[in-house]
Amino acid sequence: MNNSLKKYRFFWPVVFLAPFVICFFLFNLYPILYSFYMSTLDWAGYNQKVYVGFKNFISIFTKDKLFWKSVLNTLKIGLSGFPIALVLGLIFAALLANTKRFKNALQTMNFLPYITTPVAIGMIFTFIFEQHIGIFNKLIVAMGGKAINFIGSAKYAPFVIAFMIIWRNTGYFMTMYLAGITSISEDLYEAAKIDGASNLQCFFRITIPLLRPVTTFLTITSLIYMFQMFDEANLLFTNQTSSTVGGPSQSCLTIVWNFYNQAFGSNPRMGYASAMACVLFVIIAIVSVIGLRLMNGKED
């Protein structure tokens, strides 16, 4: 192999790939591996590290009721919110795709919640669902009902967060679906119309099946987002004087909030929290693989 060929086969690929590979090793792989190492330690983050083997993992699987409660809470909140947001996003996208006037304005309006900061969202939802002055309760009272303590009650609080997820993500899902719809050939719809298909039939038989890659992407990313949920729940129940860990009866304690509290609470357990993060990593990996398999399987 002559020198110039060598240059093209080895030198330049290495030069171009090196920045990414170095950054990946430094900022992704090393922290991941270090967190696996930390999961075998009894360490508060500032004191002497003590190696404990798999003790932290054994505790998580055999003793830690709160971890599994936080897993169930996360699933409950996520599965109440994301599927509805996905369906609404799809419906709005289908409606907007055929809209001629104010399309851009409507699109922007729907997308705005997605770019609103979580802190502001937390405040907005506190105001909406507050028992005494919240708009939602004012409506209930105006219709003859009794005001409900949505945020202070373990029964309702998880659904307030689910509603928050729907409100925030519908616009984003809609935008993604809209992008997918524009890539579907008009010929397909025209051919279907000639064969006598109604708009609804076109939607179910053409639009939805051809949007499957978008749906797969959104479902997998939503599942990952769901397991990493923190801001929405934490901001709703954190203020200077009446903060609680996990909201009413810990009903809104998500996996990451629980991890955060273990790692950075008043009595930190960095090693134990790292073990939690590892378990979360495995859960997300398994769920993502299963999700991909199921969706790609159907496609096959």
Binding site: N149, G152, A154, S242, S243, T244, V245, P248, S266, N267
Partner: peptide
């Protein structure tokens, strides 16, 4: 453990009122 007790106190007080 005061901070943990305070968190629990806030929550239980809210439950009592709810």
């Amino acid at each position: 453990y005061d901070n943990d007790i305070t968190s629990v106190r806030n929550d239980v007080a809210q439950q009592i009122m709810d």
